[in-house]
Structure formats: structure tokens, C-alpha cells
Amino acid sequence: MATLQNSYQPEYFSVVHPLDDVPEPKCSSEGLGHIAMTPAVRISLMVLRGYLIAMSLMLGYHVLDLAGAFHGLK
């Protein structure tokens, strides 16, 4: 008589909430210092500075205009 073998082996998966899990190593900037000044970084920061200067000039003009500094010129 043939023997019936139970080959079913149930799989189990455990799920752990991130807050309950073991902390994992993250990418750290320790000891790296500032970001490397590649051309992309340099150009981006230059454009950003230009943008901020343009915005500041606009804001300054608006404040002076509201204060009536240009009334005599119009």
C-alpha cells in the first residue's frame, strides 16, 4: 500500500511595525562635511542666489513704493 506523505509545510510571515522594529543603519553624513561642489551644485546654488536677490529687490521696491518713496518721481 502506498504511503501518503503530507508534504504541506505552511509558510509563516512575521510583520513588525516600523516603530517596534530594530533600528536599521541609515545613510549618515557624519564626517562627510559639506556637499561636493560639482558643476551641477555650483550652478544650482548660483541660480538660487540670483533668484533670491531678484525677489529681495522686488520686495524692497514694493516696501519703498508703499512708503511713498517714489511718489515724487511719478
Binding site: Y12, F13, S14, V15, V16, H17, D20, D21, V22, P23, E24, P25, K26, C27, S28, S29, E30, G31, L32
Partner: peptide, 22 residues
């Protein structure tokens, strides 16, 4: 670079297993 304060050997894996849902 990997965070130098992390110690995988000492990490409390048992605590995580305790809180696991199977």
C-alpha cells in the same frame, strides 16, 4: 556611509520578534 552608532550585533532583535504579527 553607515551610521557609526549602530551596532547590529547588539540590536535587540528579540524585542522586534516579540511585537511581530504572524
Amino acid at each position: 556611509r553607515i551610521d557609526s552608532t549602530f551596532d547590529p550585533v547588539m540590536a535587540p532583535r528579540a524585542v522586534a520578534r516579540e511585537n511581530a504579527i504572524v
